[in-house]
Amino acid sequence: MTAASPRLVLRGRDVTVEAISAAVVVLLVVVAATTSDTFLTSVNLTNLLKQMVTTGLLAFGMLVVILTGGIDLSVGSVVAFSGILAAGLSAGLPIPVAMVVGVAAGIAFGLVNGTLVARFGLAPFVVTLASLTTIRGLAFVYSEVPVTPSDPAFLTLGSAMIGPVPLITVIMAAVFVAGGVFLSRTPAGRSVIAIGGNAETVRLAGIDVRKHVILAYAISGACAGLAGVVLASRVGIAQPSVGVAFELDAIAACVIGGASLSGGRGSVRATFGGVLVLVLINNLLNLYGVQSFWQQVLKGLIIIVVILVRRK
C-alpha cells in the first residue's frame, strides 16, 4: 500500500495521512468525551456505530471509483432504490432473498454506470449525474409513499447486536477489511489504482482497463445497494426520498482521507478515518444541540481545512 497511501512532509518528517486522520479522530473523541455527559453513554455509542454504517459503505465504494479517476454521484439514489425495493419485495419473498435482490439492483446500476464510462468513454461525472436522477425517479416510480415492511423480521439485520457491537457495523468493518485486502493484495485492486494513475500504461501492460473500470462502479453500486438495504432495515421504513446528497458525504470522506480526485491515490484506512471524522462531528454537534444547518456549514469548513493542511 505504500504507493497508494498519500504522504506529506511535516517539519521534515514523513507523516501519513492515515496518522493525521487517526489524530483528528482521537482529538474529536477526547473533546466529545470531556465536554458531553451523553457521549460515552452506551445508547449514544451504539447510535454512533450504527450511524457510521451508511457513510462508511458508500465511502468505500466511492473510494474504489475515485481511484480509477472517476466519480459516482448516483449512490444516494441507489440507497433509496435498493432500500425500497427490498422492503417492497419482502412482502412476497423471503426476507434474505428480498435483501439480496436489493443489493443486486445496486450492482446492476453500477454495471450500467461502469459500462457507459468504460465502453463508451463518457465522462463519469455526467454519466452518474444522469443515473442519479434516473434512479431517484425509479425509486418514486416503484413507490411514491414510504414502504413499511409488514414482517418485523425485516428489522433484524438493522437491530441485531454481536456483543456490544451492532451487526451492521460488523458488516461495514468486514467490507473495509476485505476492501483493504482487495486494493493492496489482489491484481484487480492494484490495477484499479494504476488505471487512475495512467490508464494507457496499464492497457499496454496487458491489463483489461475497461473490465476493471466496470468492476469499480459495480463495487460502488454493491456498497450503495447494501447501504440502502441496511438503512431500511435499521430505520424500519424505506423512503423513496432518502439518501439525497449522501454521495457528497462519501466523497468528503475520501477527500479527507487524502484521496486524489484525479485518481491513482487514496487509502482505505484513511478513508475510514474520514468517515469517522464526519460521523463524530455530526454526533458531537447533535449532542451540543447545534442546528443541522450549522452542521453543514461546519462540515464544509472542515473539508477545506483538511485540504489546506494537506497541501504541500
Binding site: 505504500t2 504507493a3 489504482i193 494504476a194 494513475g197 495512467n198 494507457e200 500504461t201 499496454l204 491513482g264
Partner: peptide, 10 residues
C-alpha cells in the same frame, strides 16, 4: 511518461 509508467506510483 505517457505510455510507459504510472508516474505517481512507486
Amino acid at each position: 511518461k505517457r505510455t510507459g509508467l504510472v508516474l505517481g506510483m512507486s
